[in-house]
């Protein structure tokens, strides 16, 4: 009891201590808000920087694609039929006749086939997603999924 009285007495003798207590609480709240704000600002800044980088990368991709397409065309011009024919003539070649060609039997040789410029298309089959939704969905997505979950079997059941 004595200690409590001493404390009360001390505060009543010095009211600025109460003010200081109020200021302290205010500052604590302010610091918490500032911390939250700084985290928000930091995350926002990083997001903005990444967004800007994505935009720059996209632009760079587009420019590179333009360059590649342009260079492919330039290469095709340099190796066009007329240019190659002219170069062959300048180098002293002439078209062979069928009598000048010697054929050798090559077992299994099927002749020259058409070009494959991309992977042949495969029949589409349903595949499981590689990344679990737990790593990609936000908590809002997760919550929405939980709400929708009971409806899915019904929807999938069909008529």
């Amino acid at each position: 009891m004595d200690r409590v009285q001493q404390f009360t007495q001390a505060y009543s003798q010095a009211p600025w201590r109460k003010q200081l207590q109020g200021i302290g609480i205010f500052l604590v709240v302010l610091v918490v808000i500032l911390l939250a704000a700084s985290v928000f600002v930091s995350v926002t800044a990083k997001t903005a920087a990444l967004g800007k980088e994505i935009q720059r990368n996209r632009q760079e991709i587009e420019e590179l694609e333009f360059e590649i397409a342009n260079m492919e065309s330039q290469l095709a011009i340099l190796t066009s039929a007329s240019v190659m024919k002219q170069r062959a003539i300048e180098m002293g070649f002439r078209p062979a006749t069928s009598e000048e060609i010697m054929y050798i039997h090559g077992p299994g040789y099927m002749g020259r086939d058409h070009v494959e410029l991309a992977e042949p298309a495969q029949p589409t089959t349903a595949t499981a997603p590689v990344i679990s939704p737990a790593f990609t969905q936000s908590w809002v997505d997760w919550l929405a999924r939980q709400f929708r979950a009971p409806l899915i079997p019904l929807a999938e059941a069909g008529p």
Binding site: E65, A69, N70, A81, H114, V115
Partner: peptide, 29 residues
């Protein structure tokens, strides 16, 4: 960079090759 808010996004036109992969129609910058 792009001042317009609404923009027309134009995909690149496909190339045309002969049967052995020689470019017959492509794109230039």
């Amino acid at each position: 960079l792009d001042g317009k808010e609404w923009d027309t996004l134009v995909p690149a036109r496909g190339d045309i090759y002969d049967r052995h992969g020689h470019l017959l129609a492509g794109s230039q910058l």
